[in-house]
Simulated scan of single mutants.
Amino acid sequence: MRPKRMQVAVLNITTHPHTPAQYIELFLRAKQERVVGLAHGDRHAIVSSFSKSTSNDIELWTGHLNSFVDFDPKAPWLNVERGEAAAPNEVASVQLPEDLKPSMKQAFFAFAPQSHRFVFELDSGLGAHSVCRAMRLILNNKKVRGELPEVTVTIEQERETLERIFEMQTLKHLRIMVTRPNPDDFGDEDEEIERRLERQRARKLTLTLDSEKGQGLTPDDETRKLARLAMSNGRVFAEGVGPKGPQKISTENHPLIGTTLYNAVTTLKDVAFVQAAKEVLTSVFTKVRK
């Protein structure tokens, strides 16, 4: 039997102030309150389970993110046989229980409270941007967030995309957006930006550089540090000229994807997912320090 492939992506979830226990409490409340977040279109998501994993080498909490289709039953209905709007008496016969939702899909997720990273399965039909949107809405719901300030949710992005930006033959425009990081993630670079934003009571920092006419940008070390930080805490957008002509690159369109292969006969899917989560978390913290 050919091995099965599993792909995962990662979100960075940050609060200020923050402790591992505080992050865990956020997810426990999200599950308890059954808060729903819009993912895309009519598809919504909910944290349906959340419990501590039995993993020994890293603290992980695992669960399921369930998505489903929700719609306004009072909106116009279509009678497909007649090809026209359904009559009021036809719609009146439709009874939809409030606690039943159609088109359910389920994805594994794992949360590492020490690094506040949320790893989720991509094979369930929800992409990285959809999950990011849903989790941002869920965790910032007043029932979940409580008295905390805004919970920031960002996509962990490929470092290779940033390399492509800095390797452009002519870099004409560079925009870096960084939200306030947790200073214990990656050392001095995080601490410096975190203190700078805190002093100015700022939630995020945006740096925009445009080149002189007929010239290309030459980003210095400080700009490159800020861009690296944005791979976990923001995004970078660039315009310039590459080997094949004009280019526009947004790192947000290139999430970090972890891929693992497993034998479905000998390995349970949830076990394979936990292994994939550990591998991608290792990748995040190895690449960012390079």
Rank of each mutant, 00 (worst) to 15 (best):
R2G: 02
A87E: 10
Y262V: 05
R196M: 09
I257D: 08
A238Y: 08
N66E: 13
V80K: 14
V284D: 00
L162K: 04
N141Y: 11
A87D: 06
E33N: 13
V94Q: 04
P3N: 04
R34V: 12
T267N: 00
D188S: 14
A264T: 03
V280C: 04
V151Y: 03
E150R: 15
K248I: 11
I24C: 12
F68W: 09
I257T: 10
E222F: 01
A230G: 06
L65W: 02
D99S: 14
T266H: 03
L11C: 02
Q200Y: 05
V80T: 05
L148M: 12
M168P: 07
P219T: 07
S48V: 11
E98S: 10
F273I: 04
I58Y: 12
N89L: 11
P246S: 05
A45C: 08
T208V: 13
S130I: 01
E212V: 15
E191D: 07
T154N: 13
F71C: 05
F237H: 13
M6E: 00
V94S: 02
E189R: 15
E25K: 09
E147C: 06
Q169P: 00
F68H: 09
D185E: 14
G125L: 09
S250E: 10
F186L: 12
V178I: 10
L256W: 03
E192W: 08
A276L: 07
I193M: 06
N233E: 07
I249E: 09
E198S: 15
S103T: 11
A39P: 02
K52W: 02
E150N: 08
R180Y: 01
K248S: 07
V69I: 12
A86P: 10
V69Q: 05
P246V: 06
N182G: 01
K278V: 00
K142C: 02
